[in-house]
Simulated scan of single mutants.
Amino acid sequence: MTQLDVPILGEPAGSALPADAGHEGKGEIHLVHLYPREMSIYGDLGNTRCLAARIRRHGYVPVVHQHHPGQPFPEQAHLVVGGGGQDSGQSTVEDDLARIADRLRGLAADGTPMLMICGMYQLFGNTFVTVDGRSLPGLGILDVTTRGNAQRMIGPVVLATDHGDVVGYENHSGSTVLGAGQAPFGRVRHGMGNNGTDGTEGAVAGHVIGSYLHGPVLPANPRLADALIGWAAEQATGRDFEPGQLDDEVARQAQTRQVQRLLR
């Protein structure tokens, strides 16, 4: 196990980075970042860094694992994140994702929180059909189907969600349709969302959230970050989440101003 101060892309899978030596604090939370080289082209690594920092500030010990294709999936996983990538990146991780599919489905069924952004959101659905017609099977954790298009959906987004207003930036050509009964992550107040027509954005099933929002999304939305951390803390410790007193005033003001600017 490699001990580092911050996540480093390209570290061997299964390597982890404890934030503190030993087992101090309220307990360890193991955070797994799926495919940080292939599926993190829009700054989504920032979500991992945000979570690790906030876990530490809440008094827990973050242990960050980077999972790469062909490597063993970490034995412990209390929180799993994945990011966006090009169609080529999705094709690269396809075989490995199939290899660890049962583990991920099992974690999701057990209530492990997951945040999948853009390309990984698509692969957590039923099928992703590329713009050239190639069909990539997904995990089916989220009941969504995505088809690539020549036209991209790009720009700032404001959502109404169960976690309050959420802001971010979308940049995707995939058009996603929710299955019957599949709940969206949020309702679009500004932007295009899943497909630009039905007013939905993302999808949520249990503690698994899929979304097109980059930014990265979590530093701009600390309430959402803490929801994921709270679920993970309960998974890791078997106790209720014990939040620390964090000062999020700067992030709160930035979020409020973005909402006001986009909706006025």
Rank of each mutant, 00 (worst) to 15 (best):
D87F: 14
H78T: 13
G85Y: 01
M114F: 05
V81A: 01
G83C: 01
T92F: 04
G140R: 12
L104I: 09
A108G: 06
A77R: 00
G119S: 10
R57F: 01
I117D: 06
R99H: 15
A77S: 05
D110F: 04
Q71E: 15
G59E: 02
L107E: 07
I100Q: 06
P137M: 02
G89A: 00
L97W: 08
R134K: 13
V93I: 07
P74I: 00
R134M: 04
G82K: 10
G140Q: 08
R105H: 10
L115R: 02
L123E: 09
S91R: 15
R54V: 12
D132I: 10
T92S: 10
C118W: 02
G111Y: 04
G111T: 06
L136H: 10
G83W: 00
H67T: 12
D96N: 03
L115P: 00
D102I: 13
A77M: 01
T145K: 00
G111F: 01
R134P: 11
G125Y: 04
G140L: 12
G133S: 10
A98H: 15
R99F: 13
A108L: 02
V93F: 04
D96H: 08
H58T: 12
P72I: 06
G83Y: 02
L139H: 02
V64C: 06
R57E: 04
G138A: 05
G70D: 11
A109E: 09
G85I: 02
R57M: 11
E94V: 10
V144A: 08
D102C: 14
A101S: 15
G82E: 08
P69A: 00
G82Y: 14
Q76R: 11
F128D: 04
H78Q: 09
A108D: 08
P72M: 08
F128K: 03
C118L: 04
G125N: 07
D95C: 10
D110W: 01
Q90M: 13
V81Y: 03
I55N: 01
P137W: 07
F128T: 12
S135T: 14
H58D: 02
I141D: 02
A101R: 15
H65K: 06
T130R: 12
Y60I: 14
V131M: 08
I55M: 05
D95Q: 05
D87G: 11
A108E: 08
N126C: 05
M116L: 14
L139S: 01
G89K: 07
G133Q: 11
P74Q: 01
G84R: 08
D96R: 00
Q66N: 09
Q86W: 08
